[in-house]
């Protein structure tokens, strides 16, 4: 029997320990020891398992709104030997003002050009009388231009102010002058929007 490489001493086929077998044996023991150490460190933790389930409830969350005024009117207020005026009227929204809010009304007059004029009206009042100076205090200014009149309801909640959509129908005013005995009168009159 031919001796295996690395063997020395002993007859052929002998199972006496040889450096090669010793090295393999030591290697196996080292691997076994490492595996045992790994299993020991892994197996030392506690394993948990539990049941989980989900369910739900649904709801709708909504934000309130400021109700607009209704039935807006424009009435001519003609005066002899005085500047004619217009009276804008409306019907207040139904219901109470939300808690913590303060209501007022806003009447705006907007011409084709220039800056709109806004006139605040306190709560509890449902009309306002307007003369040319309310539109433009400059006699030679834009007071006579045709203006669309819009009325809004507005509620202030301390740190914020909410304004309603514009009320219907829309109204309009226009201006003209008359002279009587050398005095010029600047008149506002209701017009078609």
């Amino acid at each position: 029997m031919r001796r295996q490489s690395g063997e020395h001493g002993g007859p052929a086929g002998s199972t006496a320990g040889t450096p090669a077998r010793l090295r393999r044996g030591v290697a196996r023991a080292t691997v076994a020891g490492a595996v045992a150490l790994l299993l020991g460190s892994v197996g030392s933790g506690v394993a948990w398992a539990w049941w989980t389930t989900t369910t739900s409830v649904a709801a709708t969350v909504s934000v309130g709104s400021v109700a607009p005024v209704t039935a807006v009117t424009c009435t001519n207020d003609s005066r002899f030997l005085y500047d004619d005026r217009v009276v804008i009227g409306w019907t207040a929204p139904a219901g109470t003002v939300p808690a913590g809010g303060t209501r007022q009304y806003l009447v705006t007059l907007t011409a084709a050009t220039g800056t709109p004029v806004t006139i605040p009206v306190p709560n509890g009042t449902s009309s306002v009388s307007l003369g040319w100076r309310d539109v433009d205090s400059n006699p030679s200014g834009t007071w006579a231009a045709k203006r669309t009149i819009r009325v809004y309801s507005s509620i202030t909640f301390g740190a914020t102010t909410w304004t309603s959509a514009e009320a219907t129908p829309l109204r309009a005013s226009t201006g003209s002058t008359t002279t009587f005995f050398g005095t010029t009168y600047r008149n506002l009159a209701c017009a078609t929007p």
């Binding site: 709801a59 709708t60 909504s62 309130g64 909640f157 740190a159």
Partner: peptide
């Protein structure tokens, strides 16, 4: 009822 909330409510 989560309807019609206004500021601060």
């Amino acid at each position: 009822d989560f309807a019609a909330l206004y500021p601060g409510q």
